[in-house]
Amino acid sequence: MNVFRLTGDLSHLAAIIILLLKIWKSRSCAGISGKSQILFAIVFTTRYLDLLTSFISIYNTSMKVIYIGCAYATVYLIYMKFRATYDGNHDSFRVEFLVVPVGGLAVLVNHDFSFLEILWTFSIYLESVAILPQLFMISKTGEAETITTHYLFCLGLYRALYLLNWIWRFYFESFFDMIAIVAGVVQTVLYCDFFYLYITKVLKGKKLSLPA
């Protein structure tokens, strides 16, 4: 464990909690892509099946349980409890165009052709593009609530911090995992234009609105 991975995990946890609280407190999931949240639930489920097979640490197990629990709670709030506030018209990204290629790639490019390892690889590839429906929805509506931008900032920051963690591990532990690094770079790059808007607008107290 190093400071980048720890702050990365905490940033990820913050993002998940911010989103859950936003929906729960405002009793609304306006502006939130339910499709992205379903993809994240799939990412956690396929990645954390090792909860059933191996114990690494209290921290590892508790974080995985929290991530999975919050992900399904968020999906439940969006599609069941507050479904009247779900903006399905703008949440129109064709996720099958993500899941199918990612599934194929996971079978072709992985470290070990075993069930759990292919699922892990699938979850790594899927996570790198899982935010696309959400970013697509914001581009369609042309704006995002400020709390949603904080959620996205923490979510984007977490994998950027993981990139620093992998640089640290390469330098000090001469360890690197090409699959996780490439997917992490793709994932972080997808947030770049959002990061620019967040830093130049939201941090200056303006609302995040895209040129329509």
Binding site: I56, N60, M63, H111, D112, D177, A180
Partner: peptide
């Protein structure tokens, strides 16, 4: 087993 050294990462 631990051929992939980042099994401890979330």
């Amino acid at each position: 087993e631990g051929e992939r050294g980042n099994k401890d990462e979330l």
